[in-house]
Amino acid sequence: MTKATAQDVLRINCLTPTVGVITAIREESSDVKTFRISSLDGLKPFTPNPGQLGMLSLPAIGEAMFSITAQEENSIDMAIKATGHLTDALHQLEEGQQVGVRGPYGNGFPLEYCQGKDMLFIAGGIGLAPVRSMIDYCVKYRENFGTLTVIYGARSKEDLCFKEDLFEHWPQVKNMNVYVTIDRPQEDWKGHVGFVPDYIKELAPTPKVAIICGPPVMIKFSLPALSALGFSDQDIITTLEMRMKCGVGKCGRCNIGSCYVCLDGPVFTQEQLKKLPAEY
């Protein structure tokens, strides 16, 4: 089998995955692992845009949609929190395990709209996984964007994901600032302590394009903070998750109003969300 493209996904039944293999597993935090996946012949299973999604399955157990947090020439990375039947099973796997994989799905971040603009990335916990795909893109095409700012929070030091990026790679990028916070004080933590919404208020970034993803309570209090700082609804971009089975707009369950998160999302601006029922 050669590299599966979007065309292949159309050719075969759209619900049938191709076989991929986990080539590396990295522990990010106490309950998050990043899985690197290639096709059986060592190629990239599919080529997603930043913010797009992929279905990952252990067919005997289940299948679920995950954001693709990063990609290399011949692989995609999915960062997955152990939080249910399938994800707990994924956390038991070893390298070399073959899995089902299909995608890419969804709209992804609005790359053209973001060109040339200053970017603010806000994330909490595993919410950094989808945002990171866009950060990576901005770092890769650094000259196409203005300043890059990251505000990231987790419950504790142990819950911080992507530590190498946060503390080593990103701080070295030109005109890029990274602010990390944890919820409560901890021994040998010299960084900021406090919740993300409060940290936003404290840092008071000037209005720019904000990409935000995290637990509902973080989003709930961060949005008014951004609005108060003068961010427009059009420039507040978030990525949602809903339960999905098919990923192609047919099984029904991921709708918010007339939008299907798998087709029309997962990326929505605050302006778009205000027009949809608050049912997510």
Binding site: L15, P59, A64, G84, M242, K245, I256, E279
Partner: peptide
Amino acid sequence: GLKLRTWDSCMFDEYTLMAGGHQPR
């Protein structure tokens, strides 16, 4: 194994229940 597609119903609680317990409807 056989992977099956079966009728579901939007009237059931589990239809939209997410891993981790979040329930949008």
